[in-house]
Simulated scan of single mutants.
Amino acid sequence: MERYVDGFVLPVPTEKIDAYREMAAEAGKLWIEHGALEYFEGVGDDMESDMDGMPVRTFPEIAESSDDESAVFAFIVFESREHRDEVNAKVMDDPAMDPERPSEEMPFESGRMAYGGFRSLVSYEK
Results as ranks from 00 to 15, higher is better:
residue 97 M to R: 04
residue 39 Y to I: 04
residue 62 I to M: 10
residue 46 D to I: 11
residue 93 D to W: 03
residue 102 P to F: 10
residue 62 I to D: 01
residue 29 K to Y: 02
residue 40 F to M: 14
residue 113 M to H: 05
residue 56 V to K: 14
residue 109 E to N: 14
residue 41 E to V: 15
residue 34 H to C: 03
residue 36 A to D: 03
residue 117 G to M: 05
residue 89 A to G: 13
residue 85 D to H: 08
residue 56 V to I: 15
residue 108 F to L: 08
residue 58 T to V: 07
residue 31 W to M: 04
residue 51 M to K: 09
residue 96 A to R: 10
residue 29 K to H: 07
residue 68 D to P: 03
residue 71 A to I: 01
residue 46 D to A: 11
residue 112 R to T: 06
residue 104 E to Y: 14
residue 114 A to K: 15
residue 85 D to R: 12
residue 60 P to G: 07
residue 59 F to C: 05
residue 52 D to F: 11
residue 47 M to K: 11
residue 84 R to A: 05
residue 80 S to P: 03
residue 105 E to W: 09
residue 108 F to I: 05
residue 81 R to Y: 10
residue 36 A to S: 13
residue 65 S to K: 03
residue 55 P to H: 06
residue 62 I to N: 01
residue 69 E to H: 02
residue 67 D to L: 07
residue 115 Y to T: 15
residue 91 V to A: 04
residue 72 V to N: 00
residue 111 G to P: 01
residue 38 E to S: 09
residue 59 F to T: 09
residue 75 F to Q: 02
residue 56 V to P: 03
residue 34 H to I: 03
residue 38 E to Q: 12
residue 71 A to L: 01
residue 64 E to W: 07
residue 64 E to H: 13
residue 35 G to Q: 05
residue 55 P to M: 08
residue 74 A to E: 00
residue 53 G to F: 09
